[in-house]
């Protein structure tokens, strides 16, 4: 019984981490209607920025971390003038394809600038595990989980209650209409990528606490996709239940199915859950059901 709870709790925490990574993805979609295939690479860039400002430059931990967040925001903001400015008004298809180009480009740039070697990652949070009786939890993931829930509520309120958030929502619905209402699509895309980059960096901090960083960390971007799809691409608040569902399912699969099947079934399981749920509810659990017209 204790074991079951431990598997489920650790799974839930991992799911909340996926939710945080997926939040970067959803925020970009939610404010620009661009499906970001390069999400994993954004996490890697964020992780290397944190590494660069803290361990490489030797700045105090929290100063370096703050600088890394500022650097991440700037990095996100310059993606718009570089890649998307000329594409506003064209089909979303080309914008999405550009993110595939960005994925390949960032992988190359990270390798050239930071190299393929494994780097240590600074511990912003103590690595000692949290123990309740017989249950042990990863401290970084636990704090990350709480942070993710609070952040999701905040971001969700930002998009539905504040003026700038609503402006971005309009852009996600339709670029042309937004443009004709006097809302700058370009600015919305730029802010979206800035926010997405900051969220990805935060995700990297909680994920890599006590671990090390290489360019292979990017795989978490695709691992977090089922959470984003399950929530529905437009829903920030929905990420929390979706993350917990996926995480608990994965945690239990790792605990009980993996030993039987004898492989990493738990790595595939979220995708199966995702495909099944998409069959039942094609726009995810909380996504917008858009009426399509010709």
């Amino acid at each position: 019984m204790i074991q079951l709870i431990e598997y489920a709790l650790n799974g839930a925490l991992l799911g909340l981490l996926y939710a945080l990574i997926a939040m970067g993805f959803v925020v970009i979609y939610r404010a620009s209607k661009v499906f970001n295939f390069a999400q994993g690479e954004l996490v890697v860039v964020g992780a290397f920025l944190v590494w660069f400002f803290t361990l490489d430059l030797g700045l105090p931990l929290y100063v370096g971390f703050a600088l890394a967040l500022i650097g991440a925001a700037i990095f996100g903001l310059i993606i718009e003038p570089l890649l998307f400015r000329r594409l506003v008004g064209q089909s979303t298809f080309s914008m999405v394809m550009v993110t595939i180009g960005l994925l390949i480009l960032l992988r190359g740039l990270v390798l050239v600038i930071f190299g393929p070697s494994v780097r240590p990652f600074p511990d912003l949070i103590s690595t000692a595990p949290i123990t309740f009786g017989d249950i042990t939890l990863n401290r970084g993931l636990a704090y990350g989980g709480i942070f993710t829930i609070l952040l999701a509520i905040g971001v969700s309120l930002y998009f539905s209650r504040t003026r700038p958030g609503l402006r971005m929502t309009v852009v996600a619905e339709d670029h042309q209409i937004a443009q004709s209402m006097g809302i700058s699509v370009r600015r919305s895309i730029a802010y979206a990528w800035g926010m997405g980059m900051v969220l990805s960096t935060l995700g990297a901090v909680f994920y890599l606490n006590g671990k090390s960083v290489t360019f292979l960390v990017a795989e978490i971007g695709f691992a977090a996709l089922p959470v984003a799809l399950l929530a529905g691409l437009e829903s920030v608040g929905g990420l929390i239940p979706a993350g917990i569902i996926v995480g608990v399912a994965q945690g239990l699969a790792a605990g009980y199915i993996d030993p039987v099947v004898g492989g990493s079934f738990s790595a595939v399981f979220p995708y199966l859950v995702m495909v099944i749920i998409l069959f039942l509810r094609p726009s995810g659990l909380f996504g917008w059901r858009i009426v399509e017209r010709v």
Partner: peptide, 8 residues
């Protein structure tokens, strides 16, 4: 990667 990404 850099060349292909930039080319795309």
């Amino acid at each position: 990667n850099i060349i292909l990404g930039a080319a795309i």
